[in-house]
Design a protein around this nucleic acid. Sequence first.
RNA 1: GGAUCUAUAGCUCAGUUGGUCAGAGCGUUCGGUUUACAUCCGAAAGGUCGUAGGUUCGAACCCUACUAGAUCCACCA
Length: 772
Amino acid sequence: MDKVYDHKKYEDGIYKMWEESGAFTPIIDNREKTLRARGSTGRRPFSIILPLPNANDPMHMGHALFTIEDIMIRFHMMLQDPTLWLPGGDHAGIETQFVFEKHLAKIGKSRFDYDRETLFKMIWEFAEKNKDLNKNQMKRLGFAMDWTRYHYSLEPKIVAKVFETFNKLHDDGLVYRGKRLVNFCTKCGTAFSDLEVEYVEEKGVLYYLDYGIIKIATTRPETIFADVAVAVNPKDKRYKKLIGKKATIPLIDIEIPIISEKGVDKDFGTGALKITPAHDAFDWEVGQKNNLEVISIFDTRGNLIKHERVPEDVQGLKILPAREKTIELLKKSGLLLKQEEITHNVGTCYRCNRVIEPMLLPQWFVSTKPLAKKAIEAVKKGDTKIFPKKRFEKLYFDWMENIHDWNISRQIVWGPRIPVWYCLDCNSNVVINFINVKGEKIFGDYESLSQNYRFSEIEKGLQSLSAPEDVSYQLTSGACTKCKGKNILQETDTFDTWFLSGQWPLTTLGVNVNDLKKSTPDFKYFYPTSVMDTLWDILFFWVGRMMMFGLYLTGKVPFEVVHIHARVVDKFGKKMSKSKGNVVNPIEMVDKYGADALRMALVIGVAPASDIAISEDKIRAMRNFSNKLWNVARFINISMNEAGIKKFTDLTPYDTLLNDLSVDDKSILTKLEKLIAFTTSGISSYKFGLVSERLYQFVWHEFADVYIESAKDRLRSGDKNVLTILLHVLIKVLQLLHPFMPFVTECIWQELKDKRKYPDEMLLQSSWPGEK
RNA sequence: GGAUCUAUAGCUCAGUUGGUCAGAGCGUUCGGUUUACAUCCGAAAGGUCGUAGGUUCGAACCCUACUAGAUCCACCA
C-alpha cells in the first residue's frame, strides 16, 4: 500500500469493477412473499428513481447531492435487499431550446429561420453531444446506478406512454382545450404555467389618465385601447353615483361602462381601475364575471396589431415603444394628468427574465382539482410521508389545495408534440406559419394559404399552427374521421416538460397505462418506489405532479417517502451562481481531492433540509480523512505482514478472544457496537449528517488516536491477538463507511483481499454489520 | 397580503424526545520529524447558545413578544 491514498490511481477502476460485476442491477426476487409467509427473511425491494437531471447540463453541486441517494442505495445493497437506482436524463424542453437558441444567435440565426422538423433535429444533435458527459460525471461520483435501466425522456417508449396518459385524461374529461389568459413570454415565444412565472420588484411609472367623468391610474397606458370598462369599489363614496354611467377612453373616444367591483382598492391611484380583460389576469376575471367583451391588441411577438381601436401611430410597435408613443399622444392632447414613480411586482420569464405578458390564447389544460384531491388524501393518510414532515407537508398541502388548472401547452419545438390532429379542410381558419420551398416565411389561415400552396408544401415547411378555441380535433393521425380528408396536421404545441417528468416513475418502470396488469415485471416489483429524494424547490413542479399522475394512473402513490434535501451554498451561505463566481465545480473537486472527499463534505454535519455550505477547505479536510482511513488500514496491513499473517486463518479467531479481552479491547468493541447500531438506525431515518460525523469521530479519534496507539505497545511485545481485533474493527468500519465513501473503502477492502474471510467478495456486496 | 425557516466559538455548522450538550471542522497560538499518516501528532486560547420575558426542580432545546437575515406562496391596476 502506498504511503498516501491516491484516489486518481483507483477510482475509475473500482467503478468499472462494480459496474461490470452487475452489482448495480438488482435481481428481482419474486419469492419474497412466499418466503415471508414461511417466516423466512424475504427481502423487500428498495428503489429510488433518480430525479432526472437535464441531460444537456454538465454536473453541478446539485447533482453531486445524489450522494444522499447513493448512501441509501448502497446501504440497502449491503442489507442484501434487491435494490434499484434508476437513472435518467431529461430533454428539459424550454431550458435546452433556450440554450440552443443562444447558439443560433451567435451565427446570426433564430428559430424562425427553420421549419420545426429541421429545428428539432438540430436540437436533438446538440443535446446528444452532452448526454454522455452527464452520465460519465455521475459515474465519477461513484453513484451505484443501474445503467442498464437508463432512460431518456424523449425515447419513443417513454413518449408513447405519455401520449397514452394524455388520451386517458382526455377520455376522462380531465384535459381540455380552452382560450384563457396565459403567461406568455414574447421573447421565448411560448406560454408558461403559473409556477414558471417569477415576480420581480421593479420601479415603474403610474400614469393618471383622463377618462371623461372619471380619472384612472395605470402603469400600462398602451393597453387602454383594449379597455372595456372602468371598475370602482362599490363602497367608494366618490364614485357611487357614477356606476352605470360611461367613461371615455382617451385618444380614441370610445365610451365604456363604469362598473362596480369589490376587488378594487379604493386607495390605489384614483380608486378607479380600467378593465382590460385580454391583457391582465385580474381584469380577465372581472371581465368573465361581468360578461365583458375581450379585446386583444398584441400578437405573440409582442407587437400591437392592426385593430380598429388602435391608433395608426401605435400599430406595429412593440409594447414598450407603443407605451412611449401612447404617452406622447396623451401628453399632446392634455389627457395625461400626472405621473408618479411606483415600485411594483412584475411577472417575468424565469428563463430569459423578460416581462411576461398575460395573453389570450387557446391552449391545452389539465383539470388538476380532482387529481390534487387524491394527492392530498394520500399524504394525509400517510401513504406517502414527507421528510422533514413539519415544514414541508404544510407547503405541500398549501400548494395542492390552491392548485389551478395546468397549462400544458408550450409553443416550442423541443418536446413531444401534443397528440392531437386537426383537419384543415374542416378547420380552414387554422392559422399557420411555415417556410415555403423558396425559403420564404409564410403566414396566414389555411383558407387563404390553400389558394397558393399545396398541403404537402405547408406540411413540410411547417413551423407552427394556431387553432381556434372551438376547433374540431381527433386523437389519432391518418384521415379525418369526419370528412375522410387527408390534409391533417398535428398540434405544434409541445408538452410542458413536467407533463413528461411527472410520469417518470411510472413510465421508466414500464407501466401499462391502459391495463395495469400488463405492466412490466419491473413495475410490478418496484412500484411504488421507496424514496424520492429531491430539493424542495421542485416539490410543486415535480413531486406534486408525480403524486397526481401516480394516483390517477395506478391508484397508488409513486413513492413511500419524499426526502427533502437542501440547497448547496457557498461558505458564506450564498446561493451558487455563475454571475457571482462562487460556483464550486464538483468534477474539479473530484479530480483534486477524490469523489469520497466531496461526498463526505456534502453530508457531514448537515442537518436535514438545511442549506449545505460547501467550501474547498471542507473538501480538503475530508480528503485528509480518507487518507487517515487509508493509513489506518495500511498500519494494520503492515503489522500483519510483520507478524507473518498472510491469510485470514493465520489470525486467532475472533470468537475465541472474547473471553480474554483487555480493557482497551472491550472499550473499542463496545463503542463499535454502538456505532453499528447508530449508523444502521441513522441511515434508515435520514440522519446522514449525524451518522457521518460519528463515523469520522470514531475512526480518527477513537480507533486511530486511542486504540491503535495503545495497540502499538502490544504489537511490540509480540501480542498477535490484537491484530484480530484491529482487523475486526477495520472491516466493520469499512462497511459502515462504504455508503458514504465507497471508493477508498472498497479500495482498502481489495488491498486486504488475502487477509479477509471472503477474499472474492466486493465490499459493496458484503453483508451489513449486524446482518447475517 | 399570507406563510415558513434561520440566529450557538474568528468562519461554516452539529447538538436526535428539555437533565455530562456547551461540541466538530476550518482558522489562530504553542510544542513535536528514526519506521501508519506533516493530507500527521500533542496542547491551548475562544461562546452569559440574537434580545426580553415565561413554563419547569432543570432550557441552546418548549411558550410569548421583539430584533435581524433568508426563503416560499399570492399578486392591486
